Deep mutational scan, measured.
Amino acid sequence: MSIQHFRVALIPFFAAFCLPVFAHPETLVKVKDAEDQLGARVGYIELDLNSGKILESFRPEERFPMMSTFKVLLCGAVLSRVDAGQEQLGRRIHYSQNDLVEYSPVTEKHLTDGMTVRELCSAAITMSDNTAANLLLTTIGGPKELTAFLHNMGDHVTRLDRWEPELNEAIPNDERDTTMPAAMATTLRKLLTGELLTLASRQQLIDWMEADKVAGPLLRSALPAGWFIADKSGAGERGSRGIIAALGPDGKPSRIVVIYTTGSQATMDERNRQIAEIGASLIKHW
């Protein structure tokens, strides 16, 4: 067993022997301040990774656009098919120029040779490549099948209805392509620590998230040296922004954090800054 596999296998073990965790309302004060600064709703939840206990939450059962955070769930569904012998990570998928959609920095470079399922998941999570996500959605049967996968996990809230990039439209009061912070946090925890996926697939999923290259201005910008984070960000229309993450000190994750916002007129930089400040408060009061 590799060191990384050992780390993920012992996530519940280490967490069980940690000192009790206590909620700190100071972080919620910052979440509410972010709402004021952005002029928009902000949803927040913080779960203990081992027990699933909610440590703090704000608007945990209000719907927010998922945006690209759905790509972690998508690759979880792909990995479940791999575990069941219905898919192979090494299978190569070929596609054409007509398949390319807006923001496809990886797939646009491989029109000639195609990409493997493993490479597509890596591109979808680490670079948020939209064509990679659409190609992977095709392998599982489309958005409705991802929703069905989530329902089978016990998540009857999260739903995907459309493809990239239309799913980022974020129309107010439109339930399409949305989740709730509580539902997303619980589902992410199941994917990373539950028995739904094999140990190898859980490790692969967290490795992809740990290698995320496009979430630097968010929670990662607030992390002290030595902290662990595996995350996936999302951005959408109407001032929408979000991030889902597993993080913790001492090089291992111990909490799940989900943050979503929508309806702001603020710039992307300002949305990023507010999420980073929430992260800084979380870490300060850990």
Score class of each variant (00 low, 15 high):
Arg118Cys: 14
Thr126Tyr: 09
Gly90Trp: 03
Pro249Asn: 15
Glu195Met: 15
Asn168Ala: 08
Ser122Ala: 13
Leu160Gln: 08
Gly263Pro: 07
Gly248Asp: 04
Ala34Val: 06
Gly43Ala: 05
Val31Tyr: 01
Glu119Leu: 07
Pro172Asp: 03
Thr267Leu: 04
Leu38Thr: 10
Trp286Phe: 11
Ser80Arg: 13
Pro249Arg: 12
Asp48Ala: 05
Arg59Tyr: 15
Ala40Asp: 12
Pro65Gly: 07
Lys232Ile: 00
Ser57Trp: 12
Glu169Trp: 10
Gln97Phe: 11
Ala133Trp: 00
Ala266His: 08
Glu270Cys: 04
Thr27Met: 02
Leu55His: 11
Arg91Val: 07
Val29Tyr: 04
Val106Tyr: 15
Pro172Tyr: 09
Gly194Met: 08
Arg238Cys: 03
Glu164Ala: 00
Met67Phe: 13
Glu102Gln: 06
Phe70Tyr: 13
Glu26Ala: 07
Thr178Ile: 01
Leu111Ser: 06
Ala246Phe: 07
Ile283Leu: 02
Thr116Trp: 12
Asp212Gln: 12
Leu282Val: 05
Asn50Tyr: 06
Tyr44Ser: 01
Tyr103Phe: 04
Leu38Trp: 08
Ser51Asp: 11
Glu166Arg: 14
Leu205Gly: 01
Leu28Asn: 12
Asp99Phe: 02
Ala200Phe: 14
Asn98Gly: 06
Ala185Trp: 00
Leu219Gly: 08
Pro172Arg: 06
Met184Arg: 01
Thr147Ala: 05
Ala124Gln: 11
Asp33Pro: 01
Thr69Gly: 12
Val72Leu: 08
Ala40Cys: 06
Leu192Glu: 06
Ala225Asp: 13
Asn272Gly: 13
Gly142Lys: 05
Thr126Ala: 09
Met127Asn: 15
Ile283Cys: 04
Met127Phe: 12
Pro25Phe: 09
Glu62Ser: 03
Ser201Lys: 14
Val117Asn: 13
Glu35Asn: 10
Asp99Tyr: 05
Thr147Ser: 05
Trp227Gln: 01
Thr116Pro: 12
Asp113Ser: 07
Arg63Phe: 05
Lys284Ala: 05
Leu49Ala: 13
Leu73Gln: 15
Gln265Ala: 08
Ala266Ser: 05
His285Gln: 12
Gly114Arg: 08
Lys144Leu: 04
Gly236Lys: 01
Gln265Val: 07
Lys109Trp: 10
Gly154Gln: 10
Val106Thr: 15
Pro60Val: 14
Glu102Phe: 02
Met268Asp: 13
Arg91Tyr: 15
Gly248Ala: 07
Ala170Lys: 02
Lys213His: 03
Ile229Val: 07
Pro172Lys: 13
Asn152Gly: 07
Ser254Arg: 10
Val257Arg: 00
Leu205His: 01
Arg92Gly: 11
Lys32Asp: 13
Trp286Thr: 07
Ile243Gly: 01
Ser221Ile: 12
Pro253Gly: 06
Leu135Lys: 08
Leu111Arg: 08
Thr178Pro: 00
Arg59Leu: 11
Leu137Glu: 14
Val82Lys: 13
Glu145Lys: 15
Met66Gly: 12
Gly141Trp: 06
Gly85Ile: 04
Ile229Ser: 09
Val78Pro: 00
Ser233Asn: 03
Arg273Pro: 10
Thr107Arg: 01
Asn50Ile: 03
Tyr95Arg: 02
Val117Ile: 12
Leu192Ser: 08
Val42Gly: 02
Arg255Pro: 00
Ile259Thr: 03
Ala222His: 05
Asn98Lys: 09
Gly236Phe: 04
Thr179Trp: 00
Met184Gly: 02
Ile206Val: 13
Leu282Tyr: 03
Arg273Tyr: 09
Ile256Thr: 03
Asn134Gln: 12
Cys121Gln: 02
Glu35Trp: 02
Pro105Leu: 06
Ile140Ala: 15
Thr27Tyr: 11
Ser80Ile: 14
Asn130Lys: 01
Ile229Cys: 06
Thr138Val: 07
Leu167Gly: 09
Lys232Trp: 00
Arg118Ile: 13
Ala182Val: 08
Gly251Ile: 14
Ala132Asn: 00
Gln97Trp: 06
Leu191Tyr: 10
Ala235Tyr: 10
Ile275Leu: 12
Glu102Asn: 04
Pro224Thr: 04
Ala280Phe: 15
Cys121Arg: 00
Glu108Cys: 15
Ile259Met: 03
Arg241Ser: 13
Asn152Tyr: 07
Ala123Trp: 08
Ser51Ala: 09
Asp269Gln: 05
Phe228Thr: 05
Ala266Phe: 08
Ala170Trp: 02
Thr131Trp: 03
Ile256His: 01
Asn50Glu: 06
Arg220Trp: 09
Lys252Ile: 12
Ala225His: 03
Arg176Tyr: 13
Glu164Asn: 00
Ile256Leu: 05
Leu111Gln: 08
Leu74Pro: 01
Ser264Cys: 09
Pro105Glu: 02
Leu49Gly: 12
Glu166Leu: 14
Gly142Glu: 08
Met66His: 08
Ala225Phe: 12
Thr179Asn: 00
Gly85Leu: 08
Arg271Ile: 02
Lys30Pro: 08
Leu38Gly: 13
Ser51Tyr: 08
Asn152Val: 05
Leu55Asp: 11
Thr262Gln: 09
Leu192Ile: 10
Gln97Val: 08
Asp207Ala: 06
Ile93Phe: 15
Ile283Ala: 02
Met184Trp: 01
Tyr260Glu: 01
Asp174Gln: 15
Asn130Met: 02
His24Arg: 06
Thr69Asn: 03
Asp36Lys: 12
Ala183Glu: 11
Asp99Ile: 02
Gly251Ser: 13
Leu47Asn: 12
Pro65His: 11
Leu137Pro: 00
Asp212Trp: 15
Ser264His: 10
Gln86Pro: 08
Thr69Gln: 02
Ser264Thr: 04
Glu46Ser: 12
Arg59Cys: 07
Ile243Pro: 00
Gly90Leu: 11
Val72Cys: 07
Ile171Pro: 15
Ile54Gln: 06
Glu119Thr: 09
Phe64Ser: 01
Asn168Glu: 10
Ser281Tyr: 04
Arg273Cys: 14
Glu277Ile: 14
Tyr95Gly: 08
Leu247Arg: 00
Val117Pro: 07
Ile125Ala: 02
Ala132Cys: 15
Thr116Gln: 11
His24Phe: 04
Gln274Tyr: 02
Phe58Trp: 12
Pro224Cys: 08
Ser221Asp: 13
Gly154Ala: 11
Val257Phe: 14
Asn130Gly: 15
Arg189Pro: 04
Leu188Trp: 10
Ser281Met: 02
Met209Asn: 01
Met127Thr: 13
Thr112Met: 13
Gly263Ser: 13
Ile93Asn: 15
Pro105Arg: 04
Met184Ser: 03
Leu137Arg: 01
Arg162Gln: 12
Gly114Leu: 03
Gly39Tyr: 04
Gln88Asp: 15
Thr193Pro: 02
Thr116Ala: 15
Gln88Tyr: 08
His110Gln: 14
Arg238Pro: 07
Gly248Gln: 03
Pro25Trp: 14
Ile275Ala: 08
Ala225Val: 08
Met66Asp: 00
Arg91Pro: 01
Cys121Glu: 01
Ala266Leu: 03
Val157Thr: 11
Thr158Lys: 00
Thr116Met: 12
Ile278Leu: 12
His110Ala: 15
Pro253Thr: 11
Thr131Ile: 03
Thr179Pro: 00
Glu145Asn: 11
Gln37Ser: 07
Asp113Ala: 04
Gly142Tyr: 08
Ala148Thr: 08
Asn272Leu: 12
His24Ile: 07
Met67Trp: 01
Gly52Tyr: 11
Glu87Leu: 05
Ser68Glu: 00
Glu237Cys: 14
Lys109Phe: 11
Thr27Trp: 11
Asp129Thr: 00
Asn272His: 09
Phe149Cys: 06
Thr158Ile: 05
Tyr44Asn: 00
Ala182Met: 04
Ser57Phe: 08
Gln203Ala: 02
Phe58Tyr: 02
Arg238His: 12
Ala84His: 12
Glu62Trp: 02
Pro172Glu: 12
Leu89Asp: 06
His151Met: 09
Glu56Pro: 01
Asn168Arg: 11
Ile93Pro: 14
